[in-house]
């Protein structure tokens, strides 16, 4: 019972994030506003990060796994073997942590870019920018 429920739960969330990525791509391609494109980009990053985290997840003997942090400090060799056997993979977590930092840095730069675009064209809509300015859109 527990085994099949685990499989159902993680398949649901993996498909949910595939759909999330599709929605975010749709938003980036079709919405005219630059700010909306940027919000969809944030959603895309979040979905990819959570997707990467599923690679390292594991369930041993139908018990819930432990985080990759040792709790007690003087460990015995037996405890260490058990920790190795039951904890989740720390490598994807470290890479996702790096990814979050870099994405935050990129977001700040993109926000600065959008500000400068708005100052130059007077609008954030990409269609209005293509046709050369604000006046023609509001006619």
């Amino acid at each position: 019972m527990s085994e099949v429920f685990i499989q159902l739960a993680f398949r649901t969330s993996i498909i949910a994030f595939i759909v999330n990525i599709a929605i975010a791509m749709y938003g980036v391609y079709t919405r005219p506003s630059l700010i909306k494109k940027f919000i969809c980009l944030i959603m895309f990053t979040d979905a990819i990060n959570l997707f990467a985290l599923f690679i390292g997840f594991r369930v041993v003997n139908n018990t819930y796994p432990k985080p990759p942090v040792l709790i007690r400090e003087p460990v015995s060799p037996g405890e260490l073997e058990e920790f190795k056997y039951i904890a989740v993979d720390p490598l994807p977590q470290a890479l996702v942590l790096t990814a979050i930092v870099i994405s935050l840095a990129v977001f700040m730069f993109v926000i600065g870019l959008i500000l400068v675009y708005y100052e130059h064209y007077g609008t954030t809509s990409i269609k209005a920018m293509r046709s050369g300015g604000v006046e023609e859109v509001f006619e």
């Binding site: 019972m1 527990s2 429920f5 685990i6 159902l8 739960a9 993680f10 649901t12 969330s13 949910a16 994030f17 759909v19 999330n20 929605i23 975010a24 749709y26 938003g27 919405r31 909306k36 919000i39 969809c40 959603m43 139908n62 018990t63 819930y64």
Partner: peptide, 27 residues
């Protein structure tokens, strides 16, 4: 048999709500 259900149920609910909100954000 020791069955842990609540965390897996929360995983399902959280991911479905995430998709639900994603569509609303785009629209």
């Amino acid at each position: 048999m020791n069955i842990v259900v609540l965390p897996y149920l929360l995983v399902i609910i959280c991911s479905l709500t995430s998709t639900f909100l994603a569509y609303l954000i785009v629209k």
